[in-house]
Design a protein around this nucleic acid. Structure first.
Lengths: 65, 65
DNA sequence: TAAATATGGAAAGTAAACTTGACATATGTA
DNA sequence: TACATATGTCAAGTTTACTTTCCATATTTA
């Protein structure tokens, strides 16, 4: 699963910590998602998509397997 | 989070057990999702959407909170 | 009636998402 | 140079998704 989170965040000009506060997760969670250490829960994926006015499929690219 | 999984499955005329095999999860996982005991992982949500030729947002309705 | 089929759901265990806390490094700024 | 800011990442702990096993119940079929 790839994602364009880092790029979207930088385009918005906000820090990991700021995005974390908005989404109500820790800064480490944002960093872990941006660096591919794990996938978001579906709830967090929905929150992220809503914040960027996109759908989940625009941000998270499912690679089967 | 609400979802229309049971309805979609029945429209396809398949059993929980058959859908479980297709998605490579247990029958209990399908039952638990249909009855709202927990939410799917984002990977499972993608697999479900793909199987029904829909996007995640068509099947899973995010209610903030 | 009895046996098979489909579903609901609990219990206990594993795996993955997420937390807090800590420390390292790189870069900007005083 | 020194300090602050932003990010990377690890370790240990909690929560939640998911598994396997089991049993209950409702409906269909022999």
């Amino acid at each position: 699963m790839k994602n364009g989170l880092e790029e979207l965040r930088k385009k918005r000009g906000i820090k990991q910590e700021e995005l974390a506060e908005i989404l109500e997760v820790s800064r480490q969670t944002i960093g872990s998602l941006e660096n591919g250490r794990y996938n978001p829960s579906i709830v967090l994926a929905f929150k992220i998509a809503k914040y960027f006015n996109l759908i989940i499929e625009d941000i998270f690219i499912y690679k089967e397997e």
